[in-house]
Write a protein that binds this DNA or RNA. Structure first.
Lengths: 183, 183
DNA sequence: TCTTTATTAGACGTTATCGTTTAATAAAGA
DNA sequence: TCTTTATTAAACGATAACGTCTAATAAAGA
């Protein structure tokens, strides 16, 4: 039985943070051990190998982030609220977008990861399309709007990277949104 | 005098490629030497240190890419052609966007690099704004359109990442563009 | 108390990478 | 031909990172 409550989760959380910040090259077991103030033996007890660890990291990201974002948006009542929620969560969850950015780069040499990414991108686009259908766009137009919107958000994130984020980002985004979406 | 024509440029070119693919962690001197089929002494003869090399890499990127993109677009006659040119070059220059992507991550711990990025982003946005002014938008609207357009392009690049690029990407982009720009 | 189980520490061997140093080599000029 | 200059090779030491192994330890159960 454990001396201290097992840090399995601490490893994952730290891994998630590091991967979001530096990508795959940020996952360095001995450095992580230092931060967690323990020995790397702990790592190898919890995880069979670095590879397995990374797989778990990805799983963690899939369940905890993607599902969360979509589910939270579902909670809102009106479609307008859903979109607003969607925006808020997207920008609050800064690490989320960074994680998927690096994951895409990591996936270049890993077909399975690529499949995961494709699925998630598709799911999120479908979700966004549905939002736009709900606020009155035709299926066809909704799909295009969603496609633009999704790309816009990614670009927005990329442009404000490393900048102090204004508290009024939502206002700014909405102002720009009006140029391609009528909410 | 050299046995073979100096490979100073080969190092830079390879460095550019690697940085675009893997970021700063892709710059590994001994690996590069292997690819160039030479000894790393060659590297240390041409460049004082890895740091200096990376600085040069960034300079190379600034001059060869950014200027090129803008200048080439300038060559076109009409503003519509300029936009088309801009699109074509943006998508042909796949490594360019990857380079800046990784550079932004690298800049987190490097204020000077961040300054460079800011300047370039600004310059490119101004350039794009001007394009939109030329096709009839007011200064204010042109700035917003440029801002959206630029973000859209980044997002587009991100979404097609790791996918076989359709030959009809231009058609697709233009179709989506119509939803926020009247050209 | 003794044993079992879960967990961590410490030491080890290996490989990768950085940067240095000394020697070798090839071409050009005196 | 001899020397100088540019360039590369080979070997070295240092550090970082991976993964393994054995021993230590702490808590729970018999």
């Amino acid at each position: 039985m454990p001396k201290v409550i097992a840090q399995r989760n601490d490893w994952i959380k730290l891994g998630y943070k590091l991967f979001s910040e530096e990508g795959i090259s940020g996952i360095v077991i001995e450095k992580m051990a230092k931060k967690l103030e323990c020995n790397k033996s702990s790592f190898y007890w919890h995880f069979k190998s670095k590879k397995k660890f990374i797989s778990e990291l990805i799983s963690f990201w899939i369940t905890s982030e993607t599902d969360q974002i979509i589910q939270q948006a579902e909670k809102a009542k009106s479609s307008e609220e859903k979109i607003e929620q969607f925006l808020k969560i997207t920008f609050k969850n800064d690490p989320y977008l960074e994680f998927i950015f690096f994951l895409k780069r990591y996936a270049i040499k890993n077909k399975e990861v690529q499949a995961i990414i494709d699925e998630i991108d598709t799911r999120r686009l479908e979700f966004t399309t549905q939002l736009f259908e709900e606020i009155g766009y035709s299926k066809k137009d909704a799909a295009i709007k969603a496609s633009i919107f999704y790309k816009y958000l990614i670009g927005y994130h990329e442009m404000i990277k490393n900048k102090k984020q204004s508290k009024d980002y939502l206002i700014e985004v909405k102002k720009e949104l009006k140029h391609f979406i009528t909410i």
